[in-house]
């Protein structure tokens, strides 16, 4: 499986995500700078990492979404490559229009940095196939703008189509219907606020995130 991690000025989870990709797939991802206009044609998985791209200027993810590399990411997504956006990466994907809705300032006004309880809402996706539907898992979050917003019609559509992949099992940031992670309509793009890449080794204190990456590798092998 050939993977890449996009690096924006201000990204700070890019290396953690690269380590997760490498540990699980056995292959080092390519680190791709935001000014690149093309990605390798045969890329299978693209990680859009967490951080504070462009200092969160204007809106979180707004500037990164307009950077040259994101057009290449959109093109790759269109041809079926997997795209995983975590935290700031989720914000970038909504700003790019690859995922619906927007991430607003947390309802409580505070930056939230802690482990949160999540429920896997749909295990029939490339990203969550190693989990059970309804399974309770724990991932850490660290964000100021994680309050998922979309109009009622969009929310109904997401729920109806099984595109809510993960839901908070507790109140975290005021997200509509406690949504923590959503898929695009073709199921190959996932955006989520929690950080699975931070919980893949016993030394992390929790390994709940590892299966997300394992599931992706497995989906790729099945697809290939």
């Amino acid at each position: 499986m050939k993977s890449a991690v996009i690096v924006f000025p201000g990204s700070n989870c890019d290396r953690d995500l690269a380590v997760a990709f490498e540990k699980v797939s056995g292959r080092k991802p390519e680190m791709v700078w935001h000014r690149e206009t093309e990605l390798p044609d045969d890329i299978d998985l693209i990680g859009v990492p967490g951080g504070f791209s462009y200092g969160d200027y204007l809106r979180s993810g707004a500037m990164a979404a307009r950077s040259p590399v994101m057009q290449a990411v959109a093109k790759a997504a269109e041809r079926g490559a997997f795209v995983l956006g975590i935290c700031n990466g989720f914000q970038v994907l909504t700003e790019t229009g690859l995922l619906p809705g927007a991430l607003l300032r947390n309802a409580g006004g505070h930056f939230v940095c802690r482990d949160v309880a999540l429920t896997v809402e749909n295990s029939q996706t490339a990203f969550t196939s190693r989990y059970e539907t309804g399974e309770a898992i724990t991932y850490p979050v660290a964000h100021h703008d994680g309050n998922y917003f979309a109009d009622a019609d969009t929310l109904d559509r997401l729920e109806g189509d099984g595109r809510v992949a993960l839901r908070y099992a507790e109140q975290v940031n005021g997200s509509a219907r406690n949504i923590a992670g959503i898929l695009n309509d073709t199921g190959n793009v996932l955006g989520m606020m929690p950080h699975p890449e931070r919980v893949i080794e016993p030394a992390h204190g929790c390994t709940d995130g590892r299966r997300l990456f394992e599931g992706l590798v497995e989906s790729f092998l099945t697809k290939a």
Binding site: L104, R105, N106, A107, G108, G109, N147, F149, G174
Partner: peptide, 10 residues
């Protein structure tokens, strides 16, 4: 209808 935590804090 979009929540404004900043406005609320002000």
């Amino acid at each position: 209808g979009v929540l404004d935590p900043q406005g609320r804090a002000i």
